[in-house]
Design a protein around this nucleic acid. Structure first.
Lengths: 213, 213
DNA sequence: AAAGATTATGAACAGTGTTTAGTAAAGTCT
DNA sequence: AGACTTTACTAAACACTGTTCATAATCTTT
């Protein structure tokens, strides 16, 4: 093999992995997770179904790859906020970023937070879920900094962080599963729903603010 | 047909519907939702797979039946608390009942709140989801009563109710999907986790309490 | 051009939800 | 009791699914 060919092939291999992932992501978003078959992914990238198994061991591995990617995206949304010096303002930004992420990528959000399959896979991997821990560490750190400024006084940092995460996660889950729209005034449009979510979030922020002093 | 035969047959038919539902519930709890096949349910009740379709139109209809049943169970957990006259105490009781329900019936909980399939089915049914609305109405009413006693002053009843529901739902979802245990100190036992959940809940209660006056 | 190593696939396996056509049982009527 | 009708049930098939494996096609090296 003359020089560079190995690299080119390696590159092609990576390209194909990406193509598979992109096709999978698209189809998942369109049809949902369970409803997307390996065969459909294969057809989309114009390869045989069996080929996919040369690049990914499992359907789970594909899901897991998207899981991992989605998490990095979320963390990157958080890291943009690092320039905000006031920790409570940063915390608010994180909340908004979290909601935005969930609304813009509802399927990836479900993938990450509402399914246990990829989590089981992660448990056997020992790696990569760092992303998840990291995201929570960022929250912990931010809440800790808030406490130095007399927010959440007399509360344990971890507990408050969990309450915050729970609220955000609950809100996003209720939204993406459609429960919010079912319980809210029946014929609410998507726009109204987003507004409702915003106002719920702002209410939560005010609640947190009242915990100062 | 002599008298009583129609009734007996009707009764048998109802019995079989129940048998199917019970078998399904058991298998769902054991193996999970997707992993339970109609064939497995059929084998458990010692009937042919096709027979099940004489009693339920779909697998979805079975899921929906369990969904409905689970919701009635949750609402009944709430109604027990009606004797508590102080609304905030009742609200606390509801929170604890909600958590207890989620921990004792994790699969039904997931069924009800983390899946959209049965919800879509409900959307075409126009009925039965009353249960869901009713549960939320109970929350709304309780929060409203709390406000008369100067809790959650200057907040919109609906918004506060959504925040509360979100927090409880988020907490339970994080627990049942395993995310809580992944982020919490790695080797936490189930007991430790339940304790953690309790302490998170109590923290939330204290937060709500601080909103008085 | 021949040999060797990758890469891709067609066909099959075991499983799924679901439908249909046909059988066996139960109930009804004379 | 025997014939007829209605009901209850099921075996077999269909169109899917994820996954594997022997085989074929392609590319690399000699």
């Amino acid at each position: 093999m003359h020089m560079g060919v190995a690299e080119r092939k390696e590159r092609h291999k990576e390209d194909l992995k990406r193509e598979i992932l992109d096709a999978a992501k698209l189809l998942f978003a369109e049809k949902g997770l369970e409803a997307t078959s390996i065969r459909a992914i294969a057809e989309k990238i114009e390869y045989s179904p069996a080929t996919i198994y040369l690049y990914y061991k499992d359907k789970n591995e594909i899901v897991h790859a998207l899981h991992s990617e989605g998490f990095k995206l979320l963390v990157s949304h958080f890291e943009v906020l690092n320039h905000i010096s006031h920790p409570f303002e940063r915390l608010k930004g994180m909340g908004r970023a979290y909601i935005q992420f969930a609304l813009q990528n509802p399927d990836i959000y479900k993938l990450i937070f509402n399914m246990e399959e990829p989590l089981k896979h992660v448990a056997n991997c020992f790696e990569e879920w760092d992303e998840g821990d990291r995201a929570f560490d960022i929250l912990l750190k931010t809440v800790g900094e808030c406490q130095k400024l007399d927010y959440f006084k007399d509360f344990a940092t971890e507990q408050v962080s969990f309450v915050i995460w729970s609220t955000m996660h609950g809100l996003c889950t209720l939204r993406t599963t459609g429960h919010l729209s079912h319980v809210a005034a029946a014929k609410a449009s998507d726009q109204d729903l987003d507004q409702l979510m915003s106002s719920i979030f702002e209410t939560f922020v005010i609640i947190l603010e009242k915990l100062k002093t």
